[in-house]
Design a protein around this nucleic acid. Sequence first.
DNA 1: ATAACCATGTAACGAGTTACATGATTCC
DNA 2: GGAATCATGTAACTCGTTACATGGTTAT
Lengths: 194, 194
Amino acid sequence: MALKYAVLATLLDGEASGYDLAKRFDISVSNVWHALPQQIYAELGALEKLGLVTGKVVVQESRPNKRLYSLNDSGRAALVEWVAGESRPSAVKDEALVRCFAADLVDPSKLMPGFEVRREHARNKLNHYLEVQRSFLKGRTEEEYVRSARRVGPYLALKRGLIFEQENLAWIDWVLEILRQRAEAGAGARPSAS
Amino acid sequence: MALKYAVLATLLDGEASGYDLAKRFDISVSNVWHALPQQIYAELGALEKLGLVTGKVVVQESRPNKRLYSLNDSGRAALVEWVAGESRPSAVKDEALVRCFAADLVDPSKLMPGFEVRREHARNKLNHYLEVQRSFLKGRTEEEYVRSARRVGPYLALKRGLIFEQENLAWIDWVLEILRQRAEAGAGARPSAS
DNA sequence: ATAACCATGTAACGAGTTACATGATTCC
DNA sequence: GGAATCATGTAACTCGTTACATGGTTAT
């Protein structure tokens, strides 16, 4: 359901091909809703059948032809109707938490490499978000921005992803620190799950 | 995949029926991995076929009979082998962010009720986590706990959920404040998506 | 030359959600 | 008398992921 509206909302930024949309999803929408190109192509087809987007073929030389979609009045109306509704509660969904849960089965030092990799991922994602943030603010403070910008929605959403990744990183560092301490303290001791 | 190990890890706390596990998932594992009873029953069946858990029927009077499952050596070994692996990167996955993205289509005041409801949910969940935290710490500080407790994994995982919900709540409050300001400032003005 | 980009999908599979089904017992 | 608890599932469906398929063009 959400993908449908994520696609509609992304078309607010102007008409796009499936390929274009897949890119937008990668760059600026990934924080809001993640989707693979295959899903996007399928969704655009479905949305056109529903009459919520309008597609037209653009013939190109020296490039494959493409299908450009734009949000039409029905689509905009559907989005307006949906946007004020209630969202289902969100939660962290993360394999790493399951691994944590069983962490005490093994020597703490065994877990550290996995978390180091994770830290890298988190840092990269955070840096990406920070860049997107800079491109929103363009030197203004956040306060100025949310007071004066015509469109704030995308920024509000970005901010959630930013905070999430910051806290994720902080948590990973905290976990690594505890694992390090325990690896030292328990060197030689047998791990136990009881 | 993760559900499989979530079930195995939950059985570290002792043998349980599907019904018991469903409860544990609701109370203390929900933060780590969410699953409905139907999934748990199915997974337990699959795990028994794989020989990773051992089930036995317990006959009861004045209660339906039940099937008690316990983690066996194969299951424990599978968990040990899995636990040090790499987890796929996590991300927020939240309808509300999609709604945010399209927020500027409508009057800010229209969005507030949805976010108020959400704030309630977040507060309840946070309170639940705080209670679980108290039952872990039992008066000790966090520092003491992670230094001295035999088993820290579940606490590390809980902490992530706790932080997530705290930040979620803070973000919701921030969004509501911005919506309120904009509703005032733009009273009478026409909303625009450009 | 080789990689990355443009451009669009299909097919199979796995995971998660919703709806439905049953029935005794104990708590309020 | 009605709700909640114990106890276990099946069936249909939606959503997301992985693998596969194609083929020209531009940048290094």
